[in-house]
Design a protein around this nucleic acid. Structure first.
Length: 299
DNA sequence: GTCATTTGACCACA
DNA sequence: TGTGGTCAAATGAC
């Protein structure tokens, strides 16, 4: 508990430092305006502001979690005791009923360890999930979504997870993982931000090394990113489907892989403009070969 | 036609 | 008996 309090104080201090840094950047930006500096300097400042806002958001959200969910002070992942969980449906005799009668007979089959996590966006992990159910929960504002590993049938992977929105503002999602993956579908997300391009310092290169996309609201609500045509990639494509309003993306568009549609060939199929609200980042994403170039708008 | 999602039904557990 | 976890037919997207 003492460590938790110190961690909280460190977070508060970090938040204050970030705010001070933002003030310095703002002052520097104003000076640049007066001195008519070139576009490169301005774009670097824009990107610095973008990063700074992300840092501030992280601090704010973490501090919020500290206040709202004290149990997450040490770590927001909890390992739940599975010893009290009842045995699975494997004890059921397959001969006791017909296939249709066996509907729902696997209730509360958590024999494996469960992991609970709360985050501001639906948790991203390195697995493909398939939604198999959605239930309204008593005394809960939002329904709970049930996912199983996409390789349950072909590889017999028994991993499941439940995702439920627990709070509207700021959005918080609780994800409960049940069981371990036995499938061989580890995905590798790799984002390379490179603003050291010799040709143009304002261009940031983003490269993905994925074989498949994976994100709760991508893998499930978005059937397959490879099916999204370039001309369909308007701004609405980034907003979760209305039928899946329990999911959302970060209130502010980011350069987060989870918000980009990645094709099976590991390239992004977007020519998407970004306009980050609240004076953070304006720019466009331009697809070229396997690299994704971000060009911030200047002025 | 294939695959993923939706949704009503089923049923074990508390 | 109500709640929640899962199934599977229906439906939709491509």
């Amino acid at each position: 508990m003492e460590n938790g309090r110190k961690a909280f104080e460190e977070l508060v201090r970090g938040h204050e430092f970030a705010k001070q840094l933002r003030q310095i950047i703002n002052i520097d930006e104003n000076n640049n305006d007066n001195n008519n500096n070139d576009d490169d300097d301005e774009s670097v400042t824009v990107f610095a502001q973008y990063l700074l806002t992300k840092v501030l958001n992280s601090f704010t959200n973490t501090l919020f979690l500290f206040n709202k969910y004290p149990s997450y002070q040490s770590h927001h992942i909890q390992l739940m005791d599975s010893s009290s969980i009842t045995p699975s449906q494997s004890q059921l005799s397959p001969n006791t009923s017909t296939i249709k009668d066996r509907r729902g007979c696997h209730k509360r089959s958590r024999t494996a360890e469960t992991t609970e996590e709360v985050s501001e966006t639906p948790t991203i992990d390195n697995h493909q999930w398939r939604k198999y159910g959605q239930k309204p929960i008593l005394n809960a504002k939002y329904s709970r979504n049930y996912y199983r590993c996409s390789h349950k049938l072909d590889q017999g992977c028994k991993a499941t997870k439940q995702v439920q929105r627990v709070q509207e503002k700021p959005p918080l999602y609780k994800t409960i993982y049940c069981g371990h993956h036995t499938c061989k579908d580890q995905l590798n997300h790799e984002i390379i931000l490179d603003n050291t391009s010799p040709s143009d310092s304002s261009i940031f290169l983003i490269s993905f090394d994925n074989t498949k996309q994976d994100c709760p609201f991508l893998s499930s609500s978005f059937p397959s990113s490879s099916m999204i045509k370039r001309d369909e990639c308007n701004r609405e494509e980034f907003i979760p489907m209305s039928s899946f309003d329990d999911y959302l993306i970060s209130p502010q568009p980011t350069l987060d892989a989870s918000q980009m549609h990645v094709t099976q060939s590991s390239t992004l199929e977007l020519d998407q403009s970004l306009d980050v609200m609240d004076g953070v980042l304006y720019g466009s994403l331009d697809h070229s070969d396997d690299l994704f170039q971000f060009q911030p708008y200047v002025g």
